[in-house]
Amino acid sequence: MRVLAAMSGGVDSAVAAARAHDAGHDVTGVHLALARNPQTYRTGARGCCTLEDSRDARRAADVIGIPFYVWDMADQFHESVVDNFVAEYAAGRTPNPCLRCNEKIKFAAVLDRAVALGFDAVVTGHHARLGADGLLRRSVDDGKDQSYVLAVLTRAQLDRAVFPLGDSTKAQVRAEAAERGLAVADKPDSHDICFIADGDTRGFLERRLGTAPGDIVDSRTGETIGTHNGAFSYTVGQRKGLDLRVPAADGRPRYVLSITPKTNTVTVGPREALAVDVVTATRVIWHGEPTPVECDVQLRAHGEVVRAEVTVEGDTLTARLHEPARGVAAGQAIVAYRRDPGGDAVLGSATITAGVPVSSGPAEPAVAHA
């Protein structure tokens, strides 16, 4: 099989490319240049869009013995991921840029170009598995599992995806890289958001959206207890950085409960008010059996797993949680998993639109308001 190996410059993608080559595939490595100005993105080992990463990927391809190219996808990345990230925060939602990058760049723009050039599939270093039934499954390494950010892929995209690392732990991958003589064997994993050079998400958004002072309101009293410079700086479940003028009557900390861009208001309240037992979502990708179905749902990357009854009707997914969850934010993904002996299988995913508080009726969204 003729495959294109996406090589980020990290240890995972290098070992994935090497394994594909060992399996007898005709492998070509490609590094995606995603930064319009690489110097403005993270430097050193902390990022995935740097000049150093490009060089590391090229050196790994040389060791493996495969052709290597750099594809400039900066414009597509900026439009599909960076602009989307800013727009989602402006709308009071909390996006996941890694998920969007997988959906729009690695398994849309890259895959489309690869197929047009005659490649059969795209190989990546994601920690996930594809079962014999074609369903995406969790990695054997729970701590590194990336099925959550891949669950947005369509059936057609999964059919042309290869994930060679799903049956290995991260420690095993590093050991193998060292045995192969790959210089990236001990390279630290990338963290945070690759296109925010200094890690200051609030500052990044403020530079693009400007300041927009507004009120922070107590959910119980309706009193204005603080101000902010932009509701986009907050996410549901946030506790730190609220800078409230008036302490709570009971002395307990308060958390962001909802964000209303229309009035530029951030509403805060007690931790228990974050609890929701119904989650609604849209932009549904569903691979599983007809619903309703009992399954596990994950509401954030590396977040808690909750048992739920999931129903899909058209482009709307509704999850009725068996136990309340906290910090459910609009814009994040909800991913449904079926418990299987061979590893949890992804049934589908959708983008969260709202969560219903435990004490509320179905008409009271708790996550974000337009």
Rank of each mutant, 00 (worst) to 15 (best):
R36F: 00
F232L: 11
P67A: 10
R174L: 05
N37M: 02
G331Q: 13
L150P: 06
N96I: 03
A108D: 15
H31P: 04
V115M: 00
V82H: 04
P362T: 03
E294Q: 13
E289C: 11
A366T: 01
S54R: 13
A301E: 14
G348M: 12
A308F: 05
G29N: 10
I66M: 12
T263L: 11
G134S: 08
V162S: 08
E323Y: 05
V11Y: 13
D22I: 05
R55C: 08
A363K: 08
Y337T: 04
A171Y: 07
K170G: 05
A33D: 14
V15Q: 13
D159Y: 01
K144Y: 01
T280D: 08
G131R: 15
T267I: 10
A363V: 05
D133F: 12
Q157I: 02
A345T: 04
V162D: 07
P362V: 04
E294A: 11
H126D: 09
A325G: 05
T260W: 10
D218S: 03
R202I: 12
G237Y: 02
A273H: 10
I196G: 09
V149Y: 08
T280L: 13
S359H: 15
H191M: 13
D200S: 06
P365K: 12
E206G: 08
D200T: 08
D315S: 09
V86Q: 09
A6N: 12
E103H: 09
G10M: 12
Q298L: 12
S233D: 15
R93Y: 01
A330Q: 06
G92T: 01
A5T: 11
R58G: 04
E364F: 03
A308P: 15
H126R: 00
S168H: 12
G134I: 07
C295W: 06
V3M: 12
G47C: 10
G199M: 04
K240F: 13
D159W: 05
T169I: 04
A132T: 14
D12S: 09
A366Y: 02
D22Y: 05
G181N: 08
E206T: 15
V358K: 01
V279K: 10
Q146F: 00
D112M: 02
G269H: 04
Q332P: 07
G327S: 10
F85T: 01
S190H: 03
Q172D: 14
S8V: 11
R245A: 15
V27Y: 08
E206I: 05
V335K: 08
H127T: 02
R283S: 12
F204N: 05
A366H: 11
L4K: 10
E364V: 14
R113P: 02
L158N: 08
A368P: 00
G269E: 10
A301Y: 15
H287G: 04
I66D: 09
V110P: 00
Y41F: 11
A16K: 02
Q76C: 03
R208C: 00
F85V: 00
E364C: 06
D133E: 04
S139W: 01
N264T: 05
V115Q: 00
G181M: 09
T318V: 11
R245K: 13
R180S: 03
T124V: 02
R174V: 07
R93W: 04
T224G: 02
R113Q: 15
T94L: 05
F77C: 01
P188Y: 05
R208T: 03
P95Q: 01
T351C: 08
A60M: 06
T40F: 06
R202L: 00
D120V: 00
V217A: 03
